[in-house]
Design a protein around this nucleic acid. Structure first.
Lengths: 140, 140
DNA sequence: CAGCATCCATTCAGATACTG
DNA sequence: CAGTATCTGAATGGATGCTG
């Protein structure tokens, strides 16, 4: 327990949250947003785009696509629109020909990345444990 | 930035992670696990089951189903199997008739819940911001 | 009781073609 | 260049029926 990568205040708060999460106690809007958010980040492209924009600060559409190998431009567009709608990225259209559109993380988007750092850290710390559990399960 | 719900060490670590996440720098197994994990948690049932088992410690199949309104028993079974495989829950079969199967979180499962507390906190703190961004976007 | 198996509707994502 | 529109195969999840 004390090996958790959080300070005591955060852990206490986590406990409070965990203990208060029967649907009745927890603000349903927060719960909906969390599900929503986790679902968003889980589509896997959002996280990668977030990383690319964290690293490069500002990218245009095609550059971004190159940073995210394997993404179709349909998914790129779609994901960026969602992120824009949620206030995670800004989209700047330059009225030139050929068109040029720049994408950049907002503070909100940056902080979302930081919020998920706990999950990254957990994954780093527990990778071998999960792999061992899977191996054990798969061998009956 | 200083309003993040993390202590300095965690924030520093998050930054290090964020700066080191171009595919080349980051252990691909960790990256795969994170995606995997986030995807798992994002299916929305995993998180709710995790909460139910955090609150009740030990539950049998049908009890668990009652704690998760709206879940089909197909999804309940499937999600529990995945969680068992990943080492998040233990599954104890009592050889009695009628059958009785108890589910319980492992330490790993509990710590996963704590890892996601950062996301919950972020959602709490930024709910109004996201809602405002969406409203603004939807009105053109 | 605790599932597994099957069927079915809906969603989703990739590929392709087209446009200002 | 930065998209939009359309089609299609694949994956998802719910409902139902059956079993030890």
């Amino acid at each position: 327990m004390s090996s958790l990568p959080f300070d005591d205040a955060t852990i206490r708060r986590a406990r409070r949250i965990a203990e208060n999460t029967p649907p009745a106690e927890c603000d349903p809007r927060v719960e909906a947003l969390v599900n929503d958010l986790i679902g968003r980040v889980a589509d896997k492209w959002t996280m990668i785009i977030l990383e690319a924009l964290t690293e490069h600060e500002e990218l245009r559409f095609t550059q971004l696509g190159r940073q995210v190998p394997g993404i179709s431009q349909k998914m790129l567009t779609q994901t960026l629109r969602q992120m824009e709608r949620d206030g995670m990225v800004t989209r700047t259209v330059h009225p030139v020909i050929p068109p040029r559109v720049d994408y950049r993380l907002t503070d909100l988007g940056q902080s979302l990345g930081a919020a998920f750092c706990g999950v990254w850290i957990w994954a780093e710390d527990n990778l071998t444990r999960v792999e061992a559990a899977r191996a054990a399960f798969d061998n009956r």
